[in-house]
Design a binder for these strands. Structure first.
Length: 264
DNA sequence: ATGCCCTATGATATAGGA
């Protein structure tokens, strides 16, 4: 079973890239982030033509998440339990679905903007709500494979950015954000380490300053898996090829391959 | 080395990205 996560930075702008990538790599499940469109505007028909059912949560120009699946799409959950609002708005940043017995959460964690910004406090609250939501699912269904995948907007370690000295005082690398990730791991999730096909294992390169060509990347798109999921992982890798060329998202897909349970 | 930004919007600038 092949599962991918990809911040596409607009599904309508990236539609041909997404369907083309699916043709080449044949994922069974794809978690999308930053749809930047409403549910009504989501290109459901082209995605269906590519062979995928899809569950979406999108409200417009910002945020938006989805799960695409060609192996079933059940028990869809929209948003987190007690998800905090930002500026009075329930933002579309999390969607859960069960695909062939595997529980998948596609998440787009708030950016935080600046450490002294309201958005940063919102980011930490949002991560706490994510922890609580997933902890409840793990408690009620401990043997079911589960993974939270998506754009976490946190680099877990200093090695996950191209130059930690450049991040002094910046978001994405603070102790508070990394502590929130640690609390997520404490409920029984592990960070499934991706294999870089070339260079460092980054998943994001800013559009500005030719960051990709310079290797100025970050690993912020993560696979957080429970033990039953992690036990089935045969490979995890980052498709940096997809970051190249005109019309690329600023994030590369992260792919995780699982073995089958048919021999059990 | 895959190049000095990209996207959506009540657009002709702006917010947001990280």
């Amino acid at each position: 079973m092949r599962i991918a996560t990809w911040n596409v930075n607009s599904i309508t702008a990236r539609l041909d890239r997404v369907t083309g990538w699916c043709q080449v790599h044949a994922p069974d499940v794809v978690a999308l982030q930053e749809l930047k469109c409403t549910d009504d505007a989501f290109p459901t028909m082209p995605i269906a033509a590519a062979g995928y059912q899809v569950a979406t949560l999108g409200t417009g120009r910002w945020n938006g998440v989805a799960v695409m699946s060609r192996v079933g799409l059940d028990a869809i959950t929209y948003g987190l339990t007690q998800q905090p609002q930002y500026d009075g708005v329930d933002e579309p940043r999390a969607i859960g679905a069960t695909c062939d017995g595997v529980r998948i959460w596609s998440v787009y964690v708030p950016n935080g903007r600046e450490v002294d910004h309201d958005h940063f406090a919102y980011k930490l609250h949002w991560l706490a709500a994510l922890r609580d939501t997933i902890a409840a699912e793990l408690a009620s269904n401990p043997d079911r494979p589960l993974a939270v995948i998506g754009d976490f907007n946190v680099a877990p370690t200093d090695d996950d950015v191209w130059d930690i000295a450049k991040f002094d005082g910046a978001t994405h690398v603070t102790a508070a954000e990394r502590s929130a990730l640690a609390q997520l791991r404490d409920i029984g999730l592990v960070d499934v380490a991706p294999r870089a096909l070339k260079g460092a294992p980054y998943t994001f390169w800013d559009y500005r300053a030719a960051a990709f060509g310079r290797g100025w990347g970050m690993r912020i798109d993560l696979v957080y898996a429970n033990a039953p999921f992690a036990a089935r992982v045969t490979d995890c890798w980052i498709d940096r090829e997809e970051r190249k060329g005109k019309g690329a998202s600023d994030h590369a897909p992260v792919v995780v391959d699982l073995n089958s349970t048919s021999t059990e």
